[in-house]
């Protein structure tokens, strides 16, 4: 197992290099490079070749990449075109918002998905099962930007209530902060829990068909003990694998809900950067999203080995 873990950890480096190459190249194939855009916006008109030299765009591509990636390794991700400040400042400012949102959303997802997924499997083909499954299909069908719009519009129309507009950090004003976060977290959590619930249900059903469950029931153990002690533990293994997909959902979910709920997180920052054509900021954010997703998938792979001792990797 240690060998596998070590190999898997080593394997992450080619992926990270590939990731950075893609982000790098993507920003270099912009039709009619970035300098034209800066010169258009800039009040103090500099000459194009000067600007190109300043941004390092006159160097050969491999040298640009080496410069950029060594900068990244040192924590220097470039300077924002828009604010003229290091892009890491923007990320430092917005990351806590996104992390908080994702954390609450995943709690919502887990709290909803696990019990109802189990209920749905244990009471298969009863009214409970149908209700749970219908709700999960419905939740999967409503895109989060629509759900987000509805949870703002409906309370506003019915009770004239809108969530507080100006963002307050949780350490300054926890009450206002939670008032701002619970709705968007619920919106992201809804679709995430639907996926997770379906997965829990099918994994649970699979396990309940196994011989050792029949044996346990035949021994005279109560249904409850069998479900909670024997089945649940084993059915959670495949559920862990959707965690990677869950993180993807959380990341894209935050991009959309932050825009709807006016929360100054990484997602909002990215969308604004795209609108302002702030390429260094876009580049940094996309790189960070990719990094988070890659690490989440690594965590999934590793936890899979820990959770399922039957799997041996040479």
């Amino acid at each position: 197992m240690q060998v596998y873990v070590f190999r898997r950890l080593l394997n992450i480096f080619p992926t990270l290099i590939g990731l950075s190459l893609i982000v790098f190249l993507m920003m270099r194939v912009i039709p009619g490079d970035a300098t034209a855009l800066i010169l258009e916006e800039s009040p103090t008109a500099v000459r194009k070749d000067e600007l190109r030299a300043e941004l390092g765009l006159d160097k050969p591509l491999w040298e640009q990449y080496t410069l950029w990636i060594t900068g990244v390794a040192r924590g220097d991700l470039g300077t924002s075109f828009w604010t003229n400040r290091p892009v890491t400042e923007g990320i430092q400012r917005t990351l806590p918002v996104t992390v908080e949102l994702a954390a609450i959303a995943s709690m919502v997802a887990l709290v909803v998905a696990l019990p109802f997924g189990i209920l749905s499997a244990v009471k298969q083909d009863t009214i409970w099962d149908y209700v749970c499954r219908s709700i999960s299909i419905a939740a999967l069908s409503v895109p989060n930007f629509y759900l987000g719009t509805l949870v703002i519009v409906i309370p506003a129309v019915l009770w004239k209530w809108v969530p507080p507009v100006t963002y307050r950090p949780i350490w300054e004003d926890p009450l206002t902060n939670l008032q701002q976060f619970w709705l968007p977290a619920l919106v992201i959590g809804a679709s995430a829990s639907a996926t997770l619930m379906r997965m829990t249900r099918s994994a649970m059903l699979e396990v309940m068909r196994q011989d050792y469950i029949r044996t346990a029931l035949a021994k005279g153990l109560t249904h409850r003990t069998v479900v909670l002690r024997h089945a649940l533990k084993n059915s959670l293994i495949p559920v862990v694998t959707v965690f990677g997909a869950l993180v993807a959902g959380l990341l894209t979910g935050t991009v959309i809900t932050e825009s709807i709920f006016n929360l100054p997180g990484m997602g909002r920052l990215t969308i604004d950067a795209i609108a302002q054509r702030d390429y260094p900021q876009i580049q940094a954010n996309v790189l960070l999203f990719g990094l988070i997703y890659t690490l989440a998938n690594l965590a999934v792979d590793l936890s899979y080995v820990v959770l399922n001792p039957r799997i041996r990797y040479g």
């Binding site: 590939g18 993507m26 993180v247 990215t270 996309v286 990719g290 997703y293």
Partner: peptide
């Protein structure tokens, strides 16, 4: 497959987002 690995390191919508950012909306 190594290229695919690197591309799969992005959630789908984020990849599309980055592509739109370079191509223009």
């Amino acid at each position: 497959q190594r290229v695919v690995d690197s591309l799969m390191a992005f959630p789908g919508l984020i990849l599309a987002l980055a592509l739109v950012a370079t191509l223009g909306p």
